[in-house]
Structures are given as structure tokens and as C-alpha cells.
Design a protein around this nucleic acid. Structure first.
Lengths: 213, 213
DNA sequence: GAGAAATCTTGCATGGCATGCAATTATTGA
DNA sequence: TCAATAATTGCATGCCATGCAAGATTTCTC
């Protein structure tokens, strides 16, 4: 994720490049073998063999087999995006700005196209191996906590006020739902994702609004 | 959970009573030892020893060590409660009826007092051992899917309409938040829990409502 | 109650996950 | 080129989890 933004390929020595390659090879092998045979029928030993490293080396890159499968998304939102949000930007509208943070966390800086294939694979993984779902939920939960802090800072609530946690929890629920329902078509843009999110937030607001029902 | 409601103590033979006792002993031992020493420093062997059964027997009761720790809550809502909800009851107000289903899922039929201690222990477990959080989230996720189906039935939406999923996801997020923030004081009643839930739903509605902001 | 049937417990063996440690190998920088 | 730094590897270990078959216990039937 930092390979293109912060480091030019030149500033990366041979050692660093090899590490990135090994990491990607391990991830790719883990996902591919799991989709082929099912999680139970893939051993760390086999994954390592596919990536041409020793089984022991696998655990220098990933703490668990699950880690190699789930990847790095969603990640904590970009530091710059977070700062802007905390200071009340970029538009001033709470939901719109929330959506900016959420898309940044989901898609990172490289754009949707770069993640499309990875997202598709992860989706198929979840369907084929439901045992992975709790781990994925845990990752969203980590982002949720980060988001909760950002919301608290932006709104200036006192630390014991638990409403930012509530808003963060529901916002991440909306995000998970949106990711699950994304069609991931070729032409889909970030703006499309934003629109789906906006519509989902509106629907939630209507469902629980005190005025209706 | 069914011991008091469906089965009188008399209808349960010796075998069944022993099984329940062993199950509870294993759960109790697992939780106590984990809170004392931390999850990494408790083996299945030790848990089984505390419950006076062989290590092998542990796995006749629980598929994993985590299973013994997390227990049975939240469970899928009671069948009767679900039926009433699907048919548009008990009050006809969506949020109120949703709250009825959610509290039924959290607290089961024995009332809050019976669960108070167990909930407290589980809360301390989550704080002490964050590795357990994904597993707990997974359990909420299972209830979420059940709830999603119930909402779809109640509202009569078509199967491909994904809004029931969205509502279920956010409702469970509200529920998780509420459980986390419950004070679990001695005098707290189910009505108090309902009130906290209602207030949380209202706040979510306001945060995402199209009218405000 | 005695014996047969069903069910639960246990021991044993197995395979895979994950970690620590020390030796080896590869990259970097002077 | 040589020393310093960092990554890879093999080995040993402990624990989790499962399958299987033998033994013990409860239940059912007469």
C-alpha cells in the first residue's frame, strides 16, 4: 500500500522488494489453494511450497493461516483523510464526510480498480469458508474503534460520551452491508460506491427516525 | 436454558442431568482459569481436569476452547417471539417490536437477573482477551442473519431486496453497543434495557436522518 | 432385578498450527 | 572485500482438534 505512494520503486532495495514479493506470493497461494480445495484441505506447508519458501518462513510473514487469507483491508483510514474529517471537513456535512472516511478505509489510495480483483476473491472466500467471517468482522471492528475516536474528536464530545461509539458501530454495519452488496462491475467508480453508501445511510435514518412509524 | 422452561427436573433422567452439569462445569472452569491466568496460559487439559473429566471428553462438549468461553448468548430469538414479530406484533411499531426480539435474543426467557453474572464475566473476558472478540462478533452475526430473515418476512419484501439485511445489521450494531454499555447493576430490569435500546435507536435515526444536518 | 441396547467416557494415535532458538544464508554499507 | 545487519531455514516443542475402538454407565424391556 505504501509501495506506490511513499516509496518509488528505486528507493526500495533488493531486500525490500523480495519481501513484498514473498508476501504477495504467500497471500496469492493461500487464497488460490483455499478456493480450489477448501480451507481444511490446505496446509501451511503447501502454501509455503507454492511460494517457494520454507514452512517456517510463512510465519515470519503471517501470524496465522487466516491472516494470509484476509489481507489488509479494511485498513485504518489514511492519516490525512482522518485529520481533515476531525477538523470538520471536507464538506461539513456529517454523513458525506463520514462516507469519505469510510471509502478511504475500504479502497485506500490506489482507487477501486486496483482492489476490484482482491475484493472479488475475498467475497468468494467468505462464501466458501464461513469460518473466516469472524476474522473479517474483527478487522472491521478494529476500524470501527479508530472511527469512533475520530468521530469523538470531530464532534468534541466528552470521553465518557458513548454516542460516537454507537454512530461508528452503525456506520461500519452500513459499510459491511455495502461491501457485501457491491456488484464490483468493471465500470464501477468510487462515486458509485459513495452513492450506494449514501442511499444506505438514508434508509437507516428513515427506518429508525422518530418521525416515521 | 431449557432446563427450567421446557423440562421439569423430573423429566430429565440422570444421564441428561450429568451432561448439563459437566457442560456447566467445563464452562465455569474455562472462564475462571482464563480470567485468572490469561487465555494463553490455560490448556484444555487443565480445564478438563478442573471439571473432573478427561481431556478427550472436553471435545465431546465443545468444538473449540473458545466455544467453552463464549457460551450460548446471544442465541437465535425464541421461536414464539419470532413468530409474533413476523406477524406484525406485538405492538405494531417497528422499532418497539424489534426491541422485543432483540431483548429476547439477549436475555432468553429466564430474565435479566439469571444472566447478570454470566454477562459480567463475558464482559471481563472480552476486556482481558481481545482475541475472543471476533468469535463474539461472529455469534452476533449469526443472530443478525436470523433477524434479517424475520424482518424480510414481516415486511414482505422480495428476496432480492437487501434492505432487511441492512436494517438487521444496524440493529445488531445497536444491540452490541447497548450490551457493551449496560451497567449491569443489581436493580436493572428488562424495561431498563428496552429503554436504553430505544434511546440508541432514536439517536441513530437522528444521526443519519435526511432532515437534520 | 437381569440382560440387552443405547449412550457417554476414555485412551491412544495422528496431523496440523504456531513459537522459540540457533545456525545458515543473503543483502547492505563502508 | 569485509563486517554488520537482516532474512531464511531446520529442529524441537507444546497445544489444539479429530477419528477410532474399547470400556463404563445409564436406560429400556421383559
Amino acid at each position: 500500500m505504501q509501495l506506490l505512494s511513499m516509496h518509488g520503486k528505486d528507493t526500495m532495495g533488493l531486500r525490500e522488494r523480495k519481501k513484498q514479493a514473498t508476501r504477495r506470493a504467500l497471500q496469492e497461494a493461500a487464497v488460490r489453494l483455499t478456493l480450489e480445495r477448501g480451507l481444511e484441505h490446505v496446509t501451511v506447508e503447501e502454501i509455503a511450497a507454492e511460494a517457494d519458501v520454507s514452512p517456517r518462513t510463512f510465519f515470519n510473514y503471517f501470524a496465522t493461516k487466516e491472516d494470509a487469507l484476509l489481507g489488509d483491508v479494511p485498513a485504518a483510514p489514511d492519516e490525512e483523510v482522518r485529520r481533515v474529517f476531525v477538523e470538520g471537513g471536507p464538506t461539513g456535512g456529517f454523513v458525506d464526510d463520514l462516507i469519505t472516511v469510510l471509502t478511504a478505509s475500504l479502497i485506500s489510495s490506489e482507487g477501486l480498480a486496483a482492489h476490484r480483483e482482491a475484493m472479488l476473491l475475498r467475497k468468494r472466500l467468505m462464501e466458501r469458508e464461513p469460518q473466516l467471517v469472524p476474522g473479517m468482522l474483527g478487522r472491521f471492528h478494529n476500524v470501527e474503534q479508530e472511527l469512533s475516536r475520530a468521530i469523538a474528536e470531530r464532534t468534541g464530545t466528552s470521553p465518557e460520551d458513548e454516542r460516537p461509539q454507537l454512530v461508528a458501530a452503525t456506520a461500519m454495519a452500513v459499510t459491511r452491508h455495502t461491501v457485501k452488496c457491491l456488484h464490483l462491475k468493471e465500470g464501477e467508480s468510487v462515486a458509485d460506491v459513495r452513492a450506494v453508501l449514501r442511499s444506505a445511510f438514508r434508509h437507516v435514518g428513515e427506518a429508525y427516525a422518530p418521525s416515521d412509524d
